[in-house]
Computed example of a mutant assay.
Amino acid sequence: MGRRITLVLLSFLLASGAAACKEAPSVSSTTSTTVANVLFNPCVGIPDDAVRAAGVDPETEESGIGGVHQSGWEICSWDGPKYSITVYSTGRTVAEFESKPGNVEFRDVTVADRKGRQFKVEGASKNLDCNMLVPASQGVVQLAVMNLAGQDNLEDPCVILYRVSESIVPALPR
């Protein structure tokens, strides 16, 4: 459990740059009242059947990072025997992720009839994880796959990401 929390926290910090990024944007109504974006909650919005189809166990669900809520984000992760998946929901934009140093190898992808941007994060875990951003009305939803370090014969995480996305992406907001 401790290793998983560390890997998820590392993945989150590398992928989001939470400490260096601004708070999630807010929207203004026509009466100039500021209302915070309502973020999609992946722990609530992604059905257990989709989680199982993605190859991870719904019983391992964890909200936040190490169980701690992160301001401006809704985060949920699940573990499987060889990899974990984490879904991050935020008001940030694809452009913010693309301009963050360390996020590399961006490419367009289409999964479950949704266009997105696949990328990796430079560093020690670069060959263990793969990420995808799916634009949504609130900002973006990021899906991250992280191979479990220390396993033999690990599959390419971007191949896993594509397979996992087939069951998870249909549950994401538009």
Rank of each mutant, 00 (worst) to 15 (best):
residue 159 V to M: 03
residue 156 D to Y: 04
residue 112 A to W: 09
residue 73 W to L: 03
residue 82 K to T: 13
residue 74 E to Q: 15
residue 140 V to I: 14
residue 153 N to P: 05
residue 89 S to K: 06
residue 69 H to M: 05
residue 131 N to F: 06
residue 61 E to L: 13
residue 45 G to T: 08
residue 56 V to K: 11
residue 50 A to R: 11
residue 87 V to W: 07
residue 95 A to P: 00
residue 20 A to V: 12
residue 46 I to V: 15
residue 109 V to C: 04
residue 35 V to A: 14
residue 90 T to H: 10
residue 169 V to N: 02
residue 29 S to R: 07
residue 17 G to E: 01
residue 158 C to N: 01
residue 19 A to C: 04
residue 3 R to A: 14
residue 83 Y to P: 05
residue 9 L to D: 14
residue 155 E to D: 07
residue 19 A to E: 08
residue 107 R to L: 06
residue 71 S to D: 08
residue 69 H to Q: 12
residue 160 I to K: 14
residue 39 L to I: 07
residue 13 L to H: 02
residue 37 N to Q: 13
residue 118 Q to A: 13
residue 66 G to L: 07
residue 44 V to F: 04
residue 128 L to C: 07
residue 169 V to C: 00
residue 15 A to P: 01
residue 83 Y to T: 05
residue 102 G to I: 09
residue 49 D to K: 15
residue 164 V to E: 08
residue 30 T to Y: 06
residue 165 S to T: 00
residue 81 P to G: 09
residue 110 T to E: 15
residue 57 D to I: 04
residue 9 L to E: 12
residue 121 V to R: 10
residue 84 S to V: 00
residue 90 T to N: 05
residue 34 T to I: 13
residue 45 G to P: 12
residue 153 N to Q: 14
residue 37 N to V: 15
residue 67 G to S: 03
residue 44 V to Y: 01
residue 161 L to I: 12
residue 16 S to H: 09
residue 51 V to S: 05
residue 5 I to Y: 10
residue 38 V to S: 15
residue 172 L to R: 00
residue 78 W to Y: 14
residue 10 L to E: 11
residue 58 P to E: 12
residue 147 N to I: 04
residue 67 G to E: 02
residue 119 F to Y: 15
residue 8 V to K: 11
residue 109 V to K: 11
residue 43 C to F: 10
residue 7 L to M: 14
residue 143 L to F: 00
residue 140 V to D: 05
residue 6 T to I: 07
residue 77 S to A: 12
residue 59 E to L: 13
residue 14 L to G: 15
residue 167 S to G: 05
residue 47 P to S: 09
residue 50 A to C: 11
residue 76 C to N: 08
residue 48 D to Y: 03
residue 112 A to K: 06
residue 168 I to K: 00
residue 141 V to W: 08
